[in-house]
Each structure stands twice: as structure tokens, then as C-alpha cells.
Amino acid sequence: MSTGIRIEGLTKRYGEGDTAVDALKGVDMYVAPGEVVGLIGPSGSGKSTLLKCLGAVIEPTSGRMILGDDVIYDDGWKITDLRALRRDKIGFVFQAPYLIPFLDVTDNVALLPMLAGVANSDARQRAVELLGALDIAHRAKGMPSQISGGEQQRVSIARALVNRPPVILADEPTAPLDSARALTVIRILHEMAHRYETAIIVVTHDEKIIPTFKRIYHIRDGKTHEEAGEGRALNEAEQG
């Protein structure tokens, strides 16, 4: 049984001496499998730093991170193959979809399992199934430039899910979308979290989607504060 993602006393310091800046000052966080939590906070509060630590692209200064069943960081000790960790254990959904423009929709999704050594045909099969689950199977052969922004974001969600990671980090995934599409994307994230037992952390400023989270982490001055969200049903949110 996966344990989602757990963070204990995570700190991150940039620089040294007088110029040192503590971006994270002991962050505690837990997201269960199948849960979608919001991470909100003002600019400069440490959201991006926390996301980069969670995404294993920068190394924390201290603390502990457990991803799925694996300790990936523990007070200076870290897992050695961060590339494989990001590929197999973490899914990313960005503010913009950042699809690879020279790969078609299917291969944009199938690329991750291919990178993990899955045979091309199996990887594509997995991608097509996921695209079907996200209602964009009809766009499977299209190029990213030929599909709408909302569809591109669904493809990026499919890419994040395709290796069945225990956690997905979504960085402002609804920022470029209008309200209807933003809520659609959030509903998809909730459905996917539920279906694939994935813990999803959504960094957002979007007032429309914040009420959909049952739990929210506020981050301010490098520290997180947990609070209960409205957990409004998505169809309710969609109706305004």
C-alpha cells in the first residue's frame, strides 16, 4: 500500500553567511494516496522551492521526504538516481502544458514509459488507454499545435499519470485556462487521483478551484499551515 507523500521538517537555505536566505523553515506535509490537496501562498512564500524539493530537482538543506514507500531524502542523505525517481515516482503538470512539439499526442504520453524501458508498442497502448480515460483519444494522432489549450493540459495530465507515480505535482495547472476548462482540469485531477491512488499537490492562486480542495496547505514565510478546505463538489463548483 502506497503512503502518498510525507514531508517532515523540511528546510531549504540558499546561500551562506550573511546573505543566506531560508526559503523553507521546517515544512510538514502529508498527502494520502488518492487525495488532492491545494498548496497556496503569496509570491515569494516558498511554493516553488517546496515544489522543486518535492520534484527532486533541488536538494533540501535538512528534513525528511518519503515518497510512496521510499525515503528519498533524510537530513542530507538522498536517493542517488534522482532522474529515475522523477521518471517513475513523480508526475509533473505545469502551468503551460510544455508538450514536446515534435511528438504527436500519443508519443508525448508514451515517451515516459519508453524512457523507463517499456517497449514502444506497450507504452503507446498505455498512452492510448489513458488518453481514452481523459476523453481525448480522438486527438491521439494529432500534434500538440493542432489541439486546444485545454486538450493540451489533459495530455500533460496523461503524461504525468502514465508511469503510475505515487505523487503528482501540479504547478498552477489551470492558470492559462478559462473557468470552465480550469474546473474540468481539476475534476480530471480528482478523478485520476481517485482512480490511480495518486497523491496530487496542486499549487494554485486560482480562486475558482481553491474551494474544491478538502485540505489546503498555506505556505507563508517558508512554513506551511494546514487547514480544512471547503471540499465543494465539482459539479457544484462548476455551477458557480
Binding site: 520534484g55 530537482v57 532522474r83 529515475a84 522523477r86 521518471r87 517513475d88 509533473f92 505545469f94 510544455y98 514536446i100 512539439p101 515517451l111 515516459l112 524512457l115 523507463a116 503524461r159
Partner: peptide, 16 residues
């Protein structure tokens, strides 16, 4: 550059 950053983030090897 952005696509390369994404490729690296999602686990593409440098040699690829």
C-alpha cells in the same frame, strides 16, 4: 530549451 528542461525533469537521460 524549455522542452529540454521538461525532458530532463521527466527523467530523460543526458545521453539521450
Amino acid at each position: 530549451i524549455r522542452e529540454i528542461a521538461v525532458l530532463k525533469l521527466i527523467g530523460t537521460r543526458n545521453r539521450t
